[in-house]
Design a protein around this nucleic acid. Structure first.
Length: 553
DNA sequence: CGGTAATTCTGGATGTTCCC
DNA sequence: GGGAACATCCAGAATTACCG
């Protein structure tokens, strides 16, 4: 019977959750020994009489099997649906957390961007002012040259001129050509309203005399140039700057040069690059449902990492730009359609069920399907390929191995396998008459029960452990999924199992546990008695009427 | 509260299709 | 052709709603 355990089991009317345990474990206890009359099964009774012919008998059995498969298929689909819904909720919560973090990050970056843009604007304004002052000064000097035929003040004192010109980043052609020892054929003089043809030795030609009138702007210019130079040096520390305004190596004056035009545009370009980068990302995709068109969102990073120039952002904020990797459990796993055996024209069996990777607790490989579909639960939580991604399997195996009844060494076991118990080990070996299954089959069977989520796994593990027998161990890498050679207990005697924390087996070896089906039945019976904490998990129309107790309550 | 019809659930019987 | 799988129909038992 497919639904046999649900029907046969007596359901407790109430359970008391004892939360007084210091370990925080919750054990369900019935408030009393309820004796509920077994409800008669509705519907047509199964006929006891043997069919007349073979065909009739075959069809009857076939139809029963077919209905069992159908029911199992539907229940499995319902379980998958519940898991998908639970995972969807979980992933949505995580996505919202990521969205909140990214939004805060975005706001912070916006503020920083605004500050930086203001700073750039300020520097550009200052740069223009300095250029205007320099141009004005040049025009003034030209005027002096042409109109008064007088030498500019800068040229009168080689030291002062050199100093000022050096600070301005340029060198006077006159001074660079004249060595200190040379006597110029005609010294350029400063125009003097008193001396029509001033003598170079005249006090009016002394630099100090004119310094008060003309060197002040130059000093300010020099100071401003230092400010700009310092800023540029800080902004482009990797560049070696030549000590002149045009650092291209070609220009020697402060006239228009391509290198300075490029310098002026560089700051604007830096800002523009960042803006274009972000806009490019924004234009790409905003279909996650959380982001707005003007916001930075992980979905854009996730979908188009190539559109985000990492070097640009990391150049500006390498330590603050948080990288976000979203890995939700509800990533679309494309389940391959079941292929016909011959590839065409062969009808697949309707109720054959291919367990999904999620439902079976297996992770997906690159091809999107279970790569460990043939893996088996070893029963050892520290050495199990199947359970390592399955919380139910991990917890159950951990409880199973933590059970005090199975940590007791077994003196009688020929392989020192630390069997479940001496009693079970002595008579529950390979030759046991009790029908049995592997640990893998046991926990899969238990997990398939609808109430497995609400069950106290410690109790389940305890029940199973009392019906579990060690039948030897398997050597070899259990994670590889390759065939593992079993070792007879008699062959295990010479092995050293003493050093491993997991039952004395070295990593890569695993025990072979045989679980009696009676133990699994007991556990299933326990699961039948577990009252789901949330009745809303029950699928609609799922035998709601049959839940009514026959005692009239 | 008892009777009754409607509904639901379950299983058997039969026919069809497809594969080996 | 035999057998398996499936769909469909039908019967039987239990449950439920309704009414007098």
């Amino acid at each position: 019977m497919v639904n046999g355990p649900q029907r046969v089991a007596a359901k407790p009317l109430a359970v008391i959750k004892d939360t007084s345990s210091s370990a925080g474990k919750v054990f369900a206890k019935p408030s009393k020994e309820w004796v509920i009359p077994e409800r008669t099964k509705p519907g047509r009774k199964i006929s006891e009489d043997e069919p007349d012919n073979k065909r009739q008998s075959q069809n009857r059995l076939s139809q029963r099997a077919h209905r069992a498969r159908k029911t199992d298929y539907i229940s499995t689909l319902e379980e998958k649906l519940r898991q998908y819904e639970a995972d969807e909720i979980h992933s949505n919560v995580r996505l919202q957390e990521v969205a909140r973090a990214l939004k805060a990050d975005n706001e912070r970056l916006k503020v920083e961007n605004g500050e930086m843009r203001a700073e750039v604007e300020e520097l550009k304004r200052l740069n223009k002012e300095l250029k205007a002052q320099a141009a004005e000064k040049r025009g003034e000097m030209k005027l002096w040259k042409t109109d008064s035929a007088l030498t500019p003040p800068l040229a009168r004192s080689p030291a002062a001129a050199s100093s000022s010109a050096t600070r301005l980043g340029r060198t006077s052609r006159t001074n660079s050509q004249a060595s200190p020892g040379d006597v110029p054929a005609r010294r350029e003089t400063i125009a003097c309203p008193i001396c029509p043809d001033p003598d170079p030795d005249c006090p009016c030609q002394k630099p100090s005399a004119i310094g008060s009138t003309s060197s002040a702007p130059l000093a300010a210019l020099s100071m401003a140039a230092k400010v700009v130079e310092g800023h540029e040096q800080a902004q482009y520390p990797h560049e070696t700057r030549i000590d002149n305004p045009g650092h291209c190596g070609v220009c020697r004056t402060d006239a228009e040069c391509l290198c300075r035009v490029l310098d002026d545009n560089r700051q604007d370009n830096e800002v523009q690059i960042v803006e274009n980068s972000i806009e490019g990302v924004e234009r790409h995709n905003d279909a996650c449902g959380l982001c707005t068109s003007a916001s930075f969102c992980a979905c854009k990073v996730e979908t188009s990492p190539q559109t985000l120039p990492n070097e640009t952002l990391s150049h500006h904020r390498p330590a603050q730009h948080s990288s976000v990797v979203i890995r939700t459990s509800t990533q679309a796993v494309s389940l391959p359609l079941k292929k016909n055996k011959a590839g065409h024209g062969i009808k697949a069996k309707i109720w054959d069920f291919v367990p999904s990777p999620m439902a079976s607790g297996l992770s997906t490989s690159d091809d999107g399907f279970a790569s460990r579909a043939t893996a088996e639960c070893s029963g050892d939580p520290s050495n199990c390929e199947v359970c390592k991604d399955d919380s139910f399997g991990q917890e159950f195996c951990a409880q199973l191995y933590a059970d005090p009844t199975i940590t007791k060494p077994c003196d009688d076991c020929p392989g020192n396998c630390m069997s479940i118990s001496a009693l079970l080990c002595s008579d529950g070996g390979e030759g046991s008459s009790e029908s049995s299954m592997t640990a893998d089959q046991a926990w899969k069977t238990l997990k398939a029960h609808p109430n497995s989520r609400f069950a106290p796994l410690a109790l389940l593990a305890d029940v199973v452990a009392k019906h579990t027998t060690c039948v030897g161990h398997e050597a070899g890498p259990s994670f590889s999924g390759q065939s593992i050679s079993s070792t007879a207990p008699s062959q295990m005697a010479s092995r050293d199992f003493g050093s491993s924390p997991t039952f004395g087996l070295s990593r890569g070896s695993r025990r072979r546990l045989k679980v009696e089906t009676s133990g699994v039945r007991d556990a299933l019976r326990m699961l039948d008695e577990v009252m789901p904490s949330n009745q809303g998990d029950e699928p609609e129309g799922f035998n709601v009427k049959r839940r009514k107790l026959s005692n009239g309550s």
